[in-house]
Amino acid sequence: MASEYSERGRADGLRWIGLGLAVGAAALAIRRFGGRRARNGDEAESSPPVSMAFTVHRAPDEVARLWTEIDPLRDIVEHVRFDAAPGDRGTELHVRFRPRWFGRRSPAQVQERLRQFKQLAETGEIARSGLGRGVREFGDMPEGALLEALVVGGAR
């Protein structure tokens, strides 16, 4: 997925080329996540699992405790692992899940949830600009506020 995202990123300056790339990326996504669904109709069971990772600058047992408390990807993550990051950099949080194209299970949304979990765990808040025009920032949603209420004070 990473190469698809970076290709699409150039679209900002080069809109038309970007549109083409987006169509291409969508086609790839359909091939990647959609192919098997067409055959047996249950994508959550059959789409190949995807792994994602973030490093959180807190000890593995603390990250594990927060993960259990917040449970940010309930029903989505199949497997989660908390490894000590090399060089005293905290914890590598590895998750595995079966993606869908859209919604909470899409790789993009799962990645944002993980990023926000990291923000909460490290700073006790979710970054917000105050004007997520067009894009509703997670921190402004009720579940975002709830998560912050749980974690503020837990982080430094």
Binding site: S6, G9, E122, T123, G132
Partner: peptide
């Protein structure tokens, strides 16, 4: 508080960009 800030690389803070995804692209 993040690894970049702790390394004094403040302009690389991992937690202050709500649209980090866009920049990553």
């Amino acid at each position: 508080r993040c690894n970049m800030c702790r390394a004094q690389l403040f302009s690389l803070c991992e937690n202050s960009n709500p649209n980090a995804r866009q920049a990553e692209q």
